[in-house]
Design a protein around this nucleic acid. Sequence first.
RNA 1: GCUUCUGUGGCUCAGUUGGUAGAGCGAUUGAUUCGUAAUCAAUAGAUCACGGGUUCGAGUCCCGUCAGAAGCUCCA
Length: 656
Amino acid sequence: MKITLKDGSVKEYEKALSAYEVALDISEGLARAACCVKIDGEEADLRTIIGRDCELSVCTANDEEGLAAIRHTASHVLAEAVKNLFPEAKLAIGPSIDTGFYYDFDHEAFSRDDLDALEAEMKKIVKKGEKLEKFTLPREEAIAFMEERQEPYKVELIRDLPEDAEISFYRQGEFVDLCAGPHLMSTKGVKAFKLTSSSMAYWRGDSDKARLQRIYGTAYSKKEDLQAHLERMEDAKRRDHNRLGREMELFTTVDVIGQGLPLFTPKGTKMLMKLQRWIEDLEDKEWGYVRTRTPLMAKSDLYKMSGHWDHYKEGMFVLGDEEKDKEVYALRPMTCPFQYYVYKNTQKSYRDLPYRMSETSTLFRNEDSGEMHGLTRVRQFTITEGHLVVRPDQMVEEFKGCIALAKYCLTTLGVEEDVTYHLSKWDPENQEKYIGEPEVWNQTEQHIRDILIELEIPFVEDVGEAAFYGPKVDINAKNVYGKEDTMITIQWDALLAEQFDMYYVDQNGDKIRPYIIHRTSMGCYERTLAWLIEKYAGKFPTWLCPEQVRVLPISEKYEAYAAKVLKELRGRDIDAEADNRSEKIGFKIREARLARVPYMLVVGQQEEEEGLVSVRSRFAGDEGQKPLAEFIDQICREISTKEIRREEAPEENRQA
RNA sequence: GCUUCUGUGGCUCAGUUGGUAGAGCGAUUGAUUCGUAAUCAAUAGAUCACGGGUUCGAGUCCCGUCAGAAGCUCCA
């Protein structure tokens, strides 16, 4: 029997032996560090008996798979600890996840004190260092075994396994759990762990099923790694837009105004206006868009026509009472039908297409109260919304154009490397959720796939994420805690024109149904701002800063000169302020830094005579003296969006 | 919507077993007019989220409402 190792070398053995024994044969150190193995690319347990030729690689805590095995074992240790301290708790499931692991229990809520007690109990279990043993049972015996132990959730899991599946269990001391593995050889390998939080979770993720208590934790092979992880979480907390954005006075919320309704303060508003002026100019002057302004509300009739009244009424703010009032209105949750009527205002010829409409559009969605979060999930938001009405033969080119525009926006914001592209497809298993024929779906999905491949954009495909009228490209970004949000979406719609009776007249005088692209270029202003705050930790590119230059006279004597400098800066559309307080200059510099102002101009006697200013920048510190005019030109270049591709920011500003 | 946790001056937080509030930063005023990470002093500012309850007495205990956080579910 020949076993090929990761480095290409080959080991030969007479008879079958376990993966662990192979690791031991390679080196004792490796055997000690080993967490699991991959046999011909398949993840497997160290206990797996190898009896044939194969490729074997041993995974340690440095590999994704190895770390997962540690965490998975940690979740079993947690389950054992829970069973020890709370014997009445019922076990559900306990996998490893990106950031650690969790385990769900049917039990009353766990407090922080409970978690601390459980952590202590886990330490005891790890110290005992029981060996984990794997064994399998035939289906009926497995069910009987878990019934006897009074674990109804486990019984349900076994019943749902395929008839021919091997049903495996792991035993550590007294504790036994249904589990496919892989696991460490002993609980001793769970060296550094922490229970981070607990919360409710639904059995099988279904809000109609039982409510369980989930305990989250994280585990590493070394204390230092755990420490580093906890520090990363601390850093994330400092970048969190919901905290930093308030601290920097970009936005606030008020109890009596309501949930999910942020107020933008002058600095935040300035940033939003910079984004808005930039994107509107860009779309209109360089990408051929026309601008619309449509009502924020409409009669219920419109939503009945679009289908929203039946499918989305819960998500809308309805004004009036259907029972009593003759007419009921609702705030709009999207712009689509409004812009369709702009299109329909005049008859269009094939020559008029593509007809690209864009609107800085405020939308309202009545999200459930638990869904709101900072600026990323709100009840009122503004989006660079647009609909392109195109001839079928223009569809591919226009769709490409929308992706190119989105990419350009991301590049200008300096975040193009932080996104992932998704092709969101329909779910053929669930056809009643969508309209249109399967062939059309498969065709359009293939078109989009071809476009992404042609543009050399890496992407993943998600089943069941499409809109009901068509597939889409979603561009997602992660927040500081690793949670993903959609920033930009571009949707292919070959169906809705029919429902709204939209058409154009072709060469032969026939009325033809156009296709529609629903798209955003820069996304939703609130969400984009949140993302920028976290990306740059508040140290925005100069062009986006609400305050770009702060003028600091070293004493009152130079206030006149400072005023002159300020006037010249503002005359060139630079956002500048002067700090004329009678504080020490060092103090004023420190404050400007804390406010994350990118440039400080320290002005005093010498400068006034020679027309110079002393420049300090947020990134580079003291840049020395230069003529005022030269400095102004430099800043103007830096804040011109036409010249921006990417601001060079020091390492500390980049997201991990 | 569900589960848990949280809610004290503008901000960050302290407040021990129930005895009617404290710090730092910030703000204001005065002095200082100063060259690169904190000049000195004084002053103001809190019905302890809101509404009930227990108690001789509640920031502290209980219930409800509102708001925030984490997670679940949802995001057409």
